[in-house]
Nucleic acid binder design. Structure first.
Lengths: 153, 153
DNA sequence: TATTGTTATACTCTATAACTATA
DNA sequence: TATAGTTATAGAGTATAACAATA
């Protein structure tokens, strides 16, 4: 046991520590734990959960529009939507004004699961970020939303 | 063309918009574009780049310690380190005091590529975040580092 | 011609279990 | 017995190209 100095201490990141993209990716990984605890037992994952939320909030939304809102490519939406339908969380009906398109709706069960999960995830996030004030969480959210608005950069 | 209302406007996110984990994941995706432009031509990707940075900053660091610093599992480090070695960016030497372990070093080329990429990525990030003041970027970095410190939550 | 959804496919990152050789 | 590195494998998310049906 001769490695006392570097035993538990994390090594230096170097200039990596100044890169916002690195920290965003890392933090995203950290926050996947409270998410997982929040949706435990539902079979939901991060992206399907996000899709369900958008569908519940925008009844009748087209598959492509839901994907655009979340930055998900059309090709990847297909399996994700099928999965939500098979789980009984989403309903798909032919769009009335465009026979190419589908209109999506959250089922009663989907809406209920979504509500429960959203509350639970929020609790878990608040627990992980217990040292953050509400104002700090608000500041963070605002900054992140501004980055998303820069999507085309 | 009857979908004038929802033509380019993003649909509402619902309560998803209040979840920090969602925004972190999304922002991470947004910032992968400036990263990709910054490392273009080097063959580096996000995780190998981060590993190279830690190795360059901590000459002789063990494979496991580098992984711990970045939250990368031992099992996943193997191929990543091999890749960096094959690219000529990293050197691996047997550790002197532990014949199980390897000591890692950035090569001259690795250090140069790292320096160039870091500068270039920083430029690209600054461009994407042009509407952010230096103070705002600093605030964001501080908040993100605090989340990382909560890794076990 | 352009758009909606689709299929096929590949890549990146992450996760777990079981193994080896050293400690 | 514990640790450093390894192998194998699977899951989750993202990316591109090409196609059918409809606009």
């Amino acid at each position: 046991m001769t490695h006392a100095l570097t035993d538990t201490a994390a090594a230096s990141l170097g200039d990596l520590d100044t890169l916002i993209g690195y920290h965003l990716r890392r933090c995203s990984g950290v926050m996947s734990a409270p998410f997982a605890r929040g949706v435990a037992g539902t079979g939901l994952r991060q992206v399907p959960f996000a899709i369900l939320s958008v569908i519940a909030e925008n009844p009748g939304i087209r598959q492509g529009a839901a994907g655009e809102t979340l930055g998900i490519q059309r090709a990847n939406m297909v399996a994700l939507i099928n999965e939500l339908i098979e789980a009984g969380y989403v309903d798909r009906r032919p769009a009335e004004d465009d026979r190419r398109a589908f209109a999506l709706y959250a089922t009663t069960e989907g809406a209920e699961v979504l509500r429960r999960c959203t509350r639970s995830i929020t609790e878990q996030e608040t627990r992980v970020l217990a040292e953050f004030t509400a104002a700090e969480r608000g500041t963070l959210l605002k900054l992140l939303r501004r980055i998303e608005a820069r999507e085309r950069g």
